[in-house]
Design a protein around this nucleic acid. Structure first.
Lengths: 179, 179
DNA sequence: CACATCATGTAAGCCGTTACATGATTCC
DNA sequence: GGAATCATGTAACGGCTTACATGATGTG
């Protein structure tokens, strides 16, 4: 499992609350890893019990308290050890592709509409990633240097989304020709 | 969950055994959906109990018996209903990208070696997909027509793998420059 | 007035992986 | 002799999702 370790990697950058971490999954990191807030809280509990993170409660006026988590030395050690281990090759699982695969069993229009719906969502996702890229490009050189590797993951997200959109257009053309 | 429905889509093409189905996941379908043989057998059991598939035991000389599963009318109905439902957008989860994201915590050489290892695996996967494409292209027009939609999913696999490999090369260059 | 955001969690259940189990044949 | 392929499964565990729960503030 990698969620625990993903959280450690994020906490190694700077301390954060469970809420912050789950919000982070809606940003650039969200492109290649995801978790619901429930799962984040569950894993933070497990990480605390394992001694890999600890937290301080921060009282807030007008808002609920925040538990600010930080990585411990043991956590940092566990993280670097994990980082050095070989990663499993990503297993792609996409229900839309199954629906296209079996698309002859339903009306072409339904399939087209669904692909178009996904196109819109992917376009949104691409726009978000490009906006994050603009933020990166606005940084000065020294700041960029420390973000070199995260930027590579962002670039992958952008190229993957662009590739997807290009393919979806071809898809719609082929299905149109059939009608 | 989509495994049940993926199995229905495959069985809608033609009857197959649990073994056949899990082998299918190692072929072209494996690019966008995966399941271990254990899970396939578990789900076939559940599908049988739900009345969506039924099986006939086929005795074989010198080999264990095969249970040949076929889709029932109820199963076919459940499948088309599922196909018509909107699909969730694919959630990409890639441990390698987390490792690159947090790659500053480890030696550049370790990271490079890991990326290169993945490159080899992706190259293999691409070669396999291209071999399947050659089989498709060797078919006559009528045969191709019935495979139009599965071919689209195959083309996605090819372009996604090519895109990945291109990005990995850029990655290695960037990491090299840092050293 | 309802909905979104901030902020935290528990409980139940399903999905999927890992480990275990069996047994024959074929290939190196 | 050992590994791979064919062919089927069960059991246990852990990961992840869904449903439920609370409560304040700000926005349309």
């Amino acid at each position: 499992m990698s969620l625990k370790h993903s959280l450690l990697v994020m906490l190694a950058e700077h301390p954060a609350s469970g809420y912050d971490l789950s919000q982070h999954f809606k940003g650039s990191v969200g492109f290649f890893w995801n978790a619901s807030h429930q799962q984040v809280y569950q894993q933070l509990k497990a990480l605390t019990e394992a001694g890999w993170v600890r937290f301080n409660t921060e009282a807030q006026a007008d808002k609920p308290d925040r538990k600010i988590y930080e990585i411990t030395d043991e956590g940092r050690q566990a993280m670097t050890q994990w980082l050095r281990e070989p990663a499993e090759v990503n297993k792609y699982k996409d229900a839309l592709l199954i629906k296209i695969y079996g698309g002859d069993h339903i009306e072409a229009e339904v399939l087209q509409a669904e692909i178009q719906r996904h196109q819109q969502l992917h376009q949104k996702s691409l726009a978000k990633l490009k906006a994050i890229e603009q933020e990166y490009l606005a940084l000065n050189r020294d700041q960029q240097k420390t973000m070199h590797l995260p930027y590579l993951t962002l670039k992958y997200g952008i190229s993957a989304e662009e590739n997807w959109l290009q393919w979806a257009n071809q898809c719609l053309e082929v299905i149109n020709e059939k009608t």
